[in-house]
Write a protein that binds this DNA or RNA. Structure first.
Length: 477
RNA sequence: GGCGACGUACCCAAGUGGCUAAGGGGGAGGUCUGCAAAACCUUUAUUCAGCGGUUCGAAUCCGCUCGUCGCCUCCA
């Protein structure tokens, strides 16, 4: 609310109630929806990792004008539209490693609660019915605009507020809308109708979390009017502060412009996942701070792919080392690695404690990756060295787990890349080629060996010769 | 018009009062290798849009200018 970073102190020590605006289920999701979901998924995971008991609610709006329009267009019911796109949403989210929320309320399951809230608002003088609609009277709520830092007078003078003669003020917004002929409706004290958009979050958050809760999140475009209106409704109704910490993620941009449905410059999650591994997309979303805009481009996705590949390449190297390292103690300089292992978690926590600075956290991860590679370059052996390397691997896996990246085996990563890059070669055929090349190499027939390697390279497969065999990777970037 | 955010190397991107301005990608040179690949090393911002100011000290705070974007209408 202050617009600044603040120390996080939950209302109840050790517990966090977090409500995040989900989607309106009227179309397939684009990358912007993914960002919001991934950002708050990571916030939840990190808070849990640090020992908070987090209850996470994420709503689905399953009735609204756009759903009605979509249903008319597809000639199916609004329920079917909502069901279809909710299913698509969950499918996309699962691929991106976004966990399910603990509470996933639908608007249409909470009509009774919303009617109750609206009745309460009317009783307290904050709302008025007109011809089957009910409006919230903004002028009755002092503090309107405190989140979006707008003042009502400025808003009034703006020409972009819709004018409706029946409303007392253009700023007043609908809590309940009378249904038109043929539209879905619910019975209410004001006649047949359906809820306005903002009221569901007020009624559902208070049902599950009470009048006040810790974190409310969503995309920055929800700040006004959606979240501003939620505050007005909720605080007018309960008389208590609504949300302690507001968190809003920045936009995805394309050519520096906001990716959005209305501009038509959006990429659906589905389209992107046809070209990129889901982990790449997730990683990409973590490379910038969640509040900053992030430019979507193939260059950026390719860089993300390369970064992840650097991780898996190192993991492969670590695992090879652990399997093959001798027991003979051979000390090599290890103080820098040891130092880094000691301080690593503190650094990671420090980055994440600072408003979930995933970009900085990734920086630390790659510092550790470089350090362990340096250590392995020195060709150490013995139990102590092995212990340090195992510790590094476990640490990387642990923080990767918090971000829900780096959670595959190297083999799974490359298999997955092979599919997404549509390389038409089975892994067994590939192994056969590698064996063929190995025989040539044993005969020092370098020309034949290079032929095999070049042929595979053309398909996007890269070979790495090591002392005890040849590994394959998929070219990235 | 009102409100807000941002401008860090060739590209992306952390850093918001004080140690050498993280990290990734790219370029150049090198070590290793049958040759590669990977990895590592050296190098690539005496400087943080520009100009003023505050301060012992600023990329970081303040003011102005320029530029970009967002919200003010459904929108993640």
């Amino acid at each position: 609310m202050s617009g600044d970073k603040e120390d996080f102190v939950p209302l109840i020590p050790g517990r966090v109630n977090m409500y995040v605006c989900g989607i309106t289920a009227y179309d397939v999701c684009h990358l912007g929806h993914a960002r919001s979901a991934v950002v708050f998924d990571i916030i939840k995971r990190y808070l849990r990792y640090r020992g908070f008991e987090v209850r996470h609610a994420r709503n689905i709006t399953d009735i609204d004008d756009k759903i009605i329009a979509r249903a008319a267009k597809e000639n199916i019911s609004t329920e079917e539209v909502a069901r279809k796109y909710t299913a698509e949403y969950y499918r996309d989210m699962e691929l991106l490693g976004v966990s399910r929320a603990d509470i996933e309320p639908n608007a249409t399951d909470h009509i009774a609660e919303m009617i109750q809230t609206i009745q309460g608002l009317i009783a307290k003088g904050f709302a008025y019915p007109v011809d089957g609609d009910v409006y919230f009277e903004v002028s009755k709520f002092t503090g309107y605009g405190k989140l979006s830092k707008k003042n009502p007078a400025d808003l009034l003078s703006g020409a972009r507020v819709d004018v409706d003669e029946r409303k007392k003020s253009p700023l007043d917004f609908a809590l309940w809308k009378a249904s038109k002929e043929g539209e879905p409706f619910w019975e209410s004290p004001w006649g047949k109708g359906r809820p306005g958009w903002h009221i569901e979050c007020t009624s559902m958050s208070s049902k599950y979390f009470g009048d006040s809760f810790d974190i409310h999140g969503g995309g920055a475009d929800l700040i006004f009017p959606h979240h501003e209106n939620e505050i007005a409704q909720s605080e007018a109704f309960s008389g208590r502060p609504f949300v302690k910490y507001w968190m809003h993620n920045g936009f995805i941009t394309v050519d520096r412009e906001k990716m959005s449905k209305s501009l038509g410059n959006f990429f659906t999650i589905k389209d992107i996942l046809d070209k990129y591994e889901p982990e790449v997309v997730r990683y990409f979303l973590l490379t910038a701070h969640y509040r900053s805009p992030i430019e979507f481009s193939d260059v950026q996705l390719n860089e993300a792919e390369m970064s992840i590949d650097r991780y898996y390449t190192t993991v492969m190297r670590i695992n090879d080392y652990i399997e093959t390292a001798g027991d003979r103690e051979k000390a090599v300089p290890s103080s820098e690695l040891e130092e880094m292992l000691t301080s690593f978690k503190d650094k990671f926590h420090h980055a994440m404690n600072d408003d979930f600075n995933t970009a900085q956290a990734l920086g630390y991860i790659f510092e550790l990756i470089r350090e362990v590679n340096r250590f392995l370059d020195a060709k150490p052996s013995g139990q102590k060295a092995k212990g340090l390397v195992v510790q590094t691997r476990d640490l990387l896996a642990e923080v990767g787990g918090v971000l829900n990246i780096f959670n595959k085996t190297a083999r799974e990563w490359y298999s997955s890349l092979m599919k997404v890059k549509k390389i038409a070669l089975s892994e067994s055929d590939l192994q056969e080629k590698i064996n063929e090349r190995q025989r040539a190499r044993e005969n020092k027939d370098w020309a034949a060996a290079d032929n095999v390697r070049n042929a595979l390279a053309e398909k996007g497969i890269i070979l790495e010769d090591k002392k005890d065999g040849t590994a394959w990777k998929i070219r990235v970037g």
